[in-house]
């Protein structure tokens, strides 16, 4: 039974970076921009978060640095897409490539060597103490780091912001019908810019969590999570609530596969490939489901 518990318990921290990054991506997606650069943004956050936390010994500073660095990268993305009107997909790829090479170079520069970087100087992430009397469920929910709760809080904040503030209303309008916004004298570009920057901050946080939680940094530590976050946006029907559920599902799946790595004799690369394959499968299943929901199952065919 305890192995089941540990799988469940681990699902949350695994889901958190996905959740946070997906929420960021949701903001841009709702303004009409599918941000393919989530991966690069997360990687940037992971590196700088790790770097600064290692140097200062503070997790908070590390997280802030990660967010800031990713924010700067997002600025580049915004500039390309909004000001220079470049193709958003290609700009996203450019962001990914820049982040990958930059972090790799800087890592070699700062740490003087290649490979995995670790630090012991990092304080462990703040965890709430699990009260004994809450039982196993309590332990799953409460014995988590601050980041996990931040993720849920963020989901709530995003939900409120999108549907209960005028900013959110205008942001969604920018995605649905930018011409109407313009006719009202508002500039859709401004809201898109805000969305991209917020997305950068979110992905920076998500990436920072990855490296801080692991207390290590490896080039390509994100391992496709940015792409999975994109899939999660769609699986969650582009709504914060759905994204929470979808990220939990993925978190559970990854936690399960990590757990089974212990006694399944599969090569490491194949395990690494799982998230991609599962995401691809989930994407296809989702599409089929949606397709049938819309075009097939509603119609009862009368006999000819």
């Amino acid at each position: 039974m305890s192995s089941l518990l540990s799988v469940l318990h681990n699902a949350l921290p695994v889901a958190t970076p996905l959740l946070i990054a997906a929420l960021g991506g949701l903001l841009t997606e709702l303004t009409g921009i599918l941000n393919i650069g989530l991966e690069g943004l997360m990687l940037t956050g992971a590196f700088f978060g790790f770097l600064v936390a290692g140097m200062t010994g503070s997790v908070a500073l590390g997280a802030a640095a990660g967010m800031g660095a990713a924010g700067l990268l997002a600025l580049l993305f915004a500039y390309a897409c909004l000001k220079l009107r470049a193709n958003i997909f290609i700009s996203g790829i450019a962001i990914n490539l820049l982040a990958a090479s930059l972090t790799s170079i800087l890592a070699t520069r700062f740490f003087g060597r290649k490979g995995i970087y670790r630090t012991e100087a990092l304080p462990s992430l703040f965890k709430t103490a699990a009260a004994d009397w809450t039982g196993p469920v309590g332990r799953i929910l409460l014995d988590q780091s601050l980041f996990v709760y931040a993720g849920w809080l963020l989901a709530l904040l995003v939900s409120v912001a999108l549907y209960r503030t005028s900013f959110g209303l205008r942001l969604r309008a920018a995605g649905h019908d930018p011409r109407t916004l313009k006719a009202l004298g508002l500039r859709p570009t401004r809201y898109r810019f805000a969305a991209i920057m917020l997305c950068g901050l979110a992905c920076g946080l998500a990436g920072a969590y990855l490296s801080l939680n692991l207390e290590a940094f490896v080039p390509n530590i994100t391992a496709g999570r940015g792409w999975i976050a994109l899939v999660i946006i769609f699986l969650g029907y582009r709504r914060p609530g759905g994204i929470v559920i979808a990220s939990l599902v993925f978190g559970l799946a990854e936690s399960l596969s990590n757990f089974s790595q212990g006694f399944l004799d599969l090569p490491s690369q194949v395990i690494l490939a799982f998230p991609y394959l599962i995401s691809a499968a989930a994407l296809v299943v989702y599409s089929i489901w949606e397709y049938h929901r819309h075009f097939v199952s509603r119609f009862r065919l009368p006999p000819r």
């Binding site: 599918l34 393919i36 997909f89 496709g224 792409w227 994109l230 899939v231 769609f234 090569p267 490491s268 690369q269 194949v270 690494l272 490939a273 991609y276 394959l277 995401s279 691809a280 994407l283 296809v284 989702y286 599409s287 089929i288 949606e290 397709y291």
Partner: peptide, 22 residues
């Protein structure tokens, strides 16, 4: 099925790279 081909092509390829690596 209107599956987003950007994502599906990338995901398949990423998995393929890892498998070929292995």
């Amino acid at each position: 099925w209107r599956t987003n081909e950007l994502l599906s092509s990338f995901l398949l390829s990423a998995a393929a790279v890892l498998i070929v690596d292995y």
